[in-house]
Nucleic acid binder design. Structure first.
Lengths: 124, 124
DNA sequence: CTGGTTCATCGTTTTCTTACGATGACATGG
DNA sequence: CCATGTCATCGTAAGAAAACGATGAACCAG
């Protein structure tokens, strides 16, 4: 019941390349952790909402999901701890937004499973 | 204690494009399900093993993981039900291999979260 | 047919996850 | 200062997931 002005939070596109390895035990754990954070429909929907809205929003997310506020807050926490989103306090509200860097990282990690595979001829 | 000959199972590279949508409720659920299947370190390691070995293997996977055979079998089941791997019976053994098509699909779904976002300028 | 190998499934325990309402922290408008 | 709106956290109950050993099905070798 608000549709607040999407503040100019969540800055710094930060397109530095990611240094971390794409294979090995650490990469495996990283991929598992990121996937786990994505592994719930509500959290995917939250990411989708944040991706759609050009800029970041606050708890309008709650209005878009058939879940209690506390549940949504919990999901946001999971996503934030995984580094997939960022939250910034804006007065009484909190403004969430995507962290595209992490999503790109996830994409790269998954692609890494494909490139080491034999079918890389049709891979891209 | 075996290192059996990796049979020529798991054929059909099958590079048809995927028809299904990249957004919407179905895509969200699909992405969540695939991510959930990936959301465990042991399962990521299994995929990594299958990706490394050029061809498919059997329960040599069990020898590579610090888990009981039944536990590995359970993880394989999860991966198979998600469509990420394929299993083919080869005599008394079962030969597993990657399903690159599904991994590519997952990559596309994640990329879809990025493309609808504003930062697509630095997206690729 | 018999015994051995390979793997899936069953049954169980333990732990994690999800969901909710209730409560609390915090900033802002009056 | 007080009331209100916004959000996080706590406590809890229900359900899912993870791990294991034990058992069973299927296949070969002899």
């Amino acid at each position: 019941m608000n549709q607040k002005n999407a503040q100019a939070c969540c800055p710094a596109p930060n397109s530095e390349p990611d240094l971390r390895p794409i294979e090995g035990p650490e990469a495996d754990d990283e991929l598992a952790a990121l996937s786990k954070a994505l592994g719930h429909p509500a959290r995917v929907q939250i990411l989708r909402i944040l991706a759609r809205k050009t800029a970041c929003i606050c708890g309008d997310i709650v209005d878009e999901l058939p879940l209690a506020q506390s549940t949504v807050s919990q999901h946001l926490k999971v996503l934030k701890e995984a580094g997939l989103i960022r939250g910034e306090v804006d007065g009484p509200r909190v403004c969430y937004c995507l962290e595209p860097r992490t999503l790109r990282r996830l994409k790269v990690l998954i692609a890494g499973l494909l490139t080491s595979h034999r079918t890389s001829t049709i891979n891209r």
